[in-house]
């Protein structure tokens, strides 16, 4: 039951500062969409506005429309907390809860929402999520150890397990591999391929090859000019973007001829 997201005329502000302007796009259900672009052009900002994490920052606000499955995300009747339960997120740096064990970390989303579950049910969720994140075999014998004791790559997969344990519709990933070694990176890329069958995935990456490898569609963001807000320059099927993009700037960026 993964969902598609329609974004129209999205402007995103930090206080008075307009960070991103005029974004229009459609993110297809059960596919992987990659955001690429130079640093500071607003990829993270757009991503965070997709599950209303943006407004966590004081003074931050959004104008425009984001429709998920026919509902407007920024409608006053929408509970942002409920939105985030449906649209999960994985961050650039792994951030397991330091006071919790591996087991508790995976269940954190359920526990913190004080969902009451039987022990067997909990065990099942933990195993399913950890298997889903390709981590089960590595940690099944030390589920009660602190999550901080894992390696960086394992921690990141733990965070993915934590995010999928609440069974969201959409999974947002902000440079999930940027703090990881190539082996952990490829483990996570494999994982993204598998997760695609169940979730709608949006991933921000600075790694062109990664975008080409994992995504079905790619959006290229860029600043209009220095000191101007960021914008979505082009969004197309990844194959097309990497072989024959519509926009010159896209081609320049992808082929590395970018200023």
């Amino acid at each position: 039951m993964a969902k598609s997201i329609d974004v129209s005329d999205l402007d995103i502000y930090y206080g008075d500062f307009l960070a991103v302007q005029g974004v229009n796009m459609t993110i297809k259900a059960r596919s992987v969409t990659a955001f690429i672009g130079p640093s500071g052009c607003g990829k993270s900002t757009v991503l965070r506005s997709l599950n209303r994490m943006h407004e966590v920052i004081p003074g931050a606000r959004v104008e425009g429309k984001i429709m998920v499955d026919g509902q407007s995300l920024y409608d006053p009747s929408i509970d942002p907390v409920a939105v985030r339960r449906q649209i999960g997120m994985v961050f650039q740096r792994p951030n397991p809860f330091p006071t919790m064990s591996i087991y508790d970390n995976v269940l954190a989303g359920n526990r913190l929402n004080s969902k009451r579950m039987k022990k067997a049910e909990q065990d099942a969720i933990v195993e399913k999520s950890l298997r889903g994140a390709n981590l089960w075999n590595e940690v099944k014998d030390r589920l009660n150890k602190p999550g901080m004791g894992l390696s960086g790559g394992q921690q990141q997969r733990l965070c993915i397990a934590r995010a999928i344990a609440v069974e969201p519709q959409v999974l947002l990933m902000d440079e999930p591999c940027s703090a990881l070694d190539p082996i952990s990176t490829s483990a996570i890329e494999d994982l993204i391929h598998e997760l695609k069958s169940e979730f709608t995935i949006v991933i921000v990456t600075h790694n062109m090859q990664q975008a080409a490898r994992v995504s079905d569609d790619t959006g290229f963001f860029n600043l209009k000019a220095a000191g101007q807000p960021g914008q979505l320059v082009e969004m197309n099927a990844t194959k097309k973007m990497f072989s024959n993009p519509d926009n010159e700037a896209t081609e320049a960026y992808i082929s590395g001829r970018f200023g």
Binding site: D79, V81, A82, N113, S114, K115, R116
Partner: peptide, 17 residues
């Protein structure tokens, strides 16, 4: 800590309350 009492059905507004 979590017992299996079937109390408080899950609705979203309580989070805001």
């Amino acid at each position: 800590m979590t017992t299996t009492h079937e109390t408080e059905p899950e609705v979203s507004p309580p989070s805001q309350r």
